[in-house]
Design a protein around this nucleic acid. Structure first.
Lengths: 338, 338
DNA sequence: TTGTACGCGTTATCAG
DNA sequence: CTGATAACGCGTACAA
């Protein structure tokens, strides 16, 4: 039992050649039913297991798909991953997951490691500060499918899975405006990342459309980390015109801000109305419940998974650059009641 | 550039043998500095990449570590994973992650797939309903390190990484009792799982110690899923003696219960005091903030990672069954103020 | 210090 | 339909 049994062992005990055994096991058409059955039953009997290492070597593929995410411990990302995992697993692939910890350096390292370890495809959501993309060149050059999710970058022949962040930002902002807010503040993340930049653009769009005035003071770039809450509160309190509408690019961060604002005796939504982003479970559990933009993480994962698989199977005509945009939705809750 | 270059190519261009190239690249002692340098610089020049598939085949190991978790999209689990990933990545291993989706069947499938794909070790947190453990037999028989995290089972030669759930449950319960609660309810998960059973035992311990009465009506087994909230509320309202202390085995579920109780006009903590479990970020963001037991997910991940690595390196004497218990801590917040 | 030759387990090609 | 043999790329005894 401890000895690994190979197709040669099977071949010997059955009195056939190794090739025949291999083909039988793989249900190759040019093998007689009788032989196939004989081989298969003997394989079961001896407890034969195909050796993936050998398969990988001869096929030069690993049946694994690499993933690089900024952080594993985020409910959004892990939801995306759950979706991806489900799909690719059903398709017989394994997921090798690594985290960049929001650092481009680590992301580069991960990309290299995954490349070296021979992943058949790579899914990426970019780190906070990634500003060059050479580390993906190998993949593109060698035609290894490369798909960006959520935090994306346009590279030739790479798919992207996103939502329309600009429109979502627009809608969120317009919602605030429609409730009478006049002095808005957008609290976002690093605008190197499409998601935060696009939402800012949407924010500006809405402001422009409704002819409110915009200057830089209406936009605060943060790390969206709990550590930044104090400075945000400070900023809010120091604004010339009292802020009456807040658009925060992350539910989690918004929840922290709500807590801090309440401590400062702000009434929400009376004094300040707040819209978050992501439809994180937390948004429905805080008090007041948080208006937010639904971000279909699981569906993004599913689609990303399907997209990789179809590219790997060559079953779909790989468009040079196809981009999938999912539907978002503004969810109105107590934090913006009138 | 598109052609893969191998040690044979290097050997040919350098006029040495493939063996020499291989040894140079691996810094084998019996190669002259000069040759090594020649080989290495040529390797860089030609863009040589070692082919992991071949390495794996000849070494019969993959440099990957498998992980099976119940769900990826849980903040606790993804935090554990973040810890694991950090450690094993630094040690040069990749993580293949799969989710059982709380189903033993899927867990079996995952275990088999990972085994077949040749992981060098396996980390597991058990599914909700796993009741037999044959699917881990391969690992044990072949001496592939197998480590259980959080939701564990005692198997020969397998490490476990846990906290003392019984003691934590005891402390949480005693805390409620010390505040004057007389009629307690423990809302837990499937008691097949050590974590929920142990906390229940701790709950009973505290009750016994303080001579409150216990019968089955003080324990409610649930799926800890938001869908169960209504039935929990219903149960609470239907109890003969009004519940004044609630111990819920999950912060997330507790948060949902709090929300529902508030809707039913219960005052927390005046009418009912509540203790959750996990120190999920949500516990500090709900109103009232939730007393809970800190569960060091990241540290568990770190330790799990270190444990695997040391077993793989053989650097530590693998005790037959070593179990690591981490420190927990009751965190008192508003939901149990007096 | 270096070269040779074979093993690792499978798949693929080409005969038969 | 089946067998023999050559890749696949690297590690490594064994020899030199």
């Amino acid at each position: 039992m401890s000895k690994k049994i190979t197709i040669y062992d099977l071949a010997k005990t059955l009195g056939v050649s190794a090739g025949t055994v291999s083909r039988s096991l793989n249900d190759h058409p040019s093998i007689s039913m009788k032989t196939k059955e004989r081989v298969i039953s003997m394989a079961n009997e001896l407890g034969y297991k195909t050796n993936k290492f050998a398969v990988n070597l001869s096929k030069q593929k690993s049946n694994t798909i690499g993933v690089i995410v900024p952080k594993l411990n985020s409910i959004f990302m892990s939801t995306v991953l759950a979706g991806i995992e489900k799909i690719v697993n059903d398709a017989g692939y394994n997921l090798i997951i690594s985290q960049s910890l929001e650092s481009m350096e680590k992301e580069k390292l991960n990309a290299k490691t995954l490349y070296d370890s021979g992943v058949d495809a790579l899914l990426v959501s970019l780190a906070y500060d990634t500003s060059d993309f050479d580390h993906f060149a190998h993949y593109i050059r060698n035609k290894i499918p490369l798909i960006f999710i959520d935090r994306v970058h346009n590279l030739p022949n790479c798919s992207t899975i996103i939502i329309n962040n600009r429109l979502a930002g627009f809608e969120a902002t317009e919602h605030l405006i429609s409730l009478g807010c006049k002095n808005l503040l957008y609290v976002g993340g690093n605008i190197k990342r499409n998601v935060y930049l696009d939402r800012l653009e949407g924010f500006k769009d809405a402001i422009a459309k409704h002819q409110l005035d915009f200057d830089q003071s209406h936009f605060l770039e943060t790390d969206l980390s709990p550590d930044d809450v104090d400075s945000v509160i400070h900023y809010i309190k120091s604004m010339k015109n009292a802020v009456d509408g807040l658009f925060v690019s992350s539910d989690n961060f918004a929840a922290h801000i709500i807590k801090a604002l309440k401590r400062e005796n702000y009434k929400i939504p009376q004094d300040i109305k707040i819209v978050g982003f992501n439809n994180d479970p937390i948004s429905d559990l805080v008090t007041p419940t948080l208006t937010t933009v639904n971000y279909p993480g699981y569906e993004m994962g599913i689609l990303a998974g399907q997209s990789v698989i179809s590219q790997l199977n060559g079953s779909i005509n790989l468009q040079p650059a196809n981009s999938i945009t999912l539907r978002h939705k503004l969810i109105k809750r107590e934090s913006t009641f009138n």
